[in-house]
Amino acid sequence: MKQTTQGKSGIKDVQNSCDERGIAIQKVGVSDVHLPFLIKTKSGSFQSVLAKIKLAVDLPQEFKGTHMSRFIEILSDWSQKPVSYREVEYMLTDTIDRLHAMRAHIDIHFKYFIEKAAPVSGLKSMLDYDCVFSAELVRGEQLDFMFGITVPFTSLCPCSKEISHYGAHNQRGTMRAKIKQLPGKFIWIEDLAAMMEEQGSCQVYALLKREDEKYVTEKAYENPKFVEDVLRDLVLTLRKIDGVEWFEVECENYESIHNHSAYAAHVECVEQ
């Protein structure tokens, strides 16, 4: 016979009742939760961002449902504290304890801003980067943490430069990296973004004066790269990061002379 428990208020607790279908669920929780979050910066302060979050736990086969309100309570509590690698671990530990689970998983997507100086004028402006913290924790085990970032860049086509009497077509592109580091290792968003930006034909800036525009145009022309070149140089760069266990990279050029994009991708486990 199915039984429905009662909570402290005397109201029936349906989700805590027994389920007889014999199916455990690997992930159950909340998604598309939008909250202000505080992200730790390399300078030691924090940046307030708008985060889109998915938080989930495992659910044993004997339980009908989980307690959805507790996920929001947890996220609301943690949205007031600066978050980085260690805080994500604490957050998932809190989730496991409060939901009586064995495993918890979180994805935190957010747009992060980094101040950049124009290459000649030195004028400063903010450039935005799409980032994600993705982590899973099993009770009693170490945190499995992944950090991802999307970085814009300019590329100039080597073939176009070689065959043209003057000029060469160029385009804006994006490179996306996801990295998993060994326990205790962590790279700051600012450092990874700077390393990645060096792999294109030229960097992208939010604010450019005429002297800056001249510089980036000529810099790209002197440094032509296919999307394959950008990807391979990015792979070599990520291999040098201390403690990287695994990474996945994608590069996409939004072609200026085609109605399609050029794309390349690579996944690698790094031997330590």
Score class of each variant (00 low, 15 high):
Asp191Tyr: 10
Leu236Gly: 03
Leu143Val: 10
Gln80Phe: 05
Leu207Trp: 02
Glu162Gly: 02
Glu115Phe: 05
Met126Leu: 15
Ala24His: 10
Leu38Gln: 15
Ile23Trp: 12
Phe113Met: 10
Cys159Pro: 09
Arg98Ser: 05
Lys240Asn: 11
Lys225Leu: 06
Phe133Pro: 10
Ile149Ser: 04
Pro224Leu: 05
Ala117His: 01
Trp246Pro: 06
Gly173Gln: 04
Asp212Phe: 03
Asp128Asn: 14
Lys185Ile: 02
Lys2Asp: 12
Asp107Gly: 11
Gln61Val: 03
Trp78Asp: 02
Lys2Glu: 13
Glu252Ser: 09
Arg21Gly: 04
Glu268Leu: 06
Cys159Val: 09
Glu222Thr: 08
Val120Phe: 00
Val49Tyr: 07
Gln15Leu: 11
Ala104Ser: 09
Phe145Asp: 07
Lys54His: 13
Leu236His: 07
Phe147Leu: 13
His258Asp: 03
Leu182Pro: 10
Pro36Phe: 02
Ile149Gln: 05
Asp107Ile: 05
Thr4Ile: 12
His258Cys: 01
Thr150Ile: 10
Val57Cys: 11
Met68Gly: 00
Glu136Asp: 04
Phe133Val: 06
Glu198Gln: 12
Gln47Arg: 00
Asp229Ile: 01
Lys54Gly: 14
Leu92Arg: 02
Gly173Cys: 05
Cys202Pro: 01
Lys240His: 05
Lys185Cys: 13
Tyr90Gly: 13
Leu234Trp: 01
Tyr221Trp: 09
Ser125Arg: 09
Gln181Pro: 10
Ser261Pro: 11
Gly65Ala: 08
Lys225Pro: 07
Thr174Met: 09
Lys209His: 10
Val204Gly: 06
Ser9Leu: 14
Val49Glu: 04
Leu92Cys: 05
Pro82Tyr: 10
Cys18His: 15
Tyr85Ile: 03
Asp58Arg: 02
Gly10Tyr: 11
His34Phe: 12
Ile257Val: 13
Pro82Val: 03
Glu211Gly: 03
Phe110Thr: 03
Asp58Gln: 04
Tyr85Ala: 03
Val270Leu: 13
Lys42Glu: 14
Val88His: 02
Val49Gln: 04
Glu190Asn: 10
Ala206Met: 02
Val28Met: 06
Leu238Ala: 01
Val33Ser: 07
Asp58Tyr: 02
Val244Asp: 14
Ala168Met: 07
Gln15Trp: 08
Gln272Ala: 15
Glu228Gln: 01
Leu208Val: 01
Glu271His: 15
Lys225Gln: 10
Phe147Gln: 15
Gln80Ser: 15
Arg98Lys: 15
Glu268Ile: 02
Ser125His: 12
Thr154Gln: 11
Tyr166Ala: 12
Ala135Glu: 08
Tyr112Lys: 07
Ile241Leu: 13
Lys111Val: 15
Glu62Ile: 06
Val244Ile: 14
Gln26Arg: 14
Ala193Tyr: 06
Gln6Asp: 14
Lys180Tyr: 06
Ile53Met: 02
Gln26Glu: 14
Cys18Lys: 15
Lys116Tyr: 08
Val132Phe: 08
Pro152Lys: 00
Lys27Tyr: 14
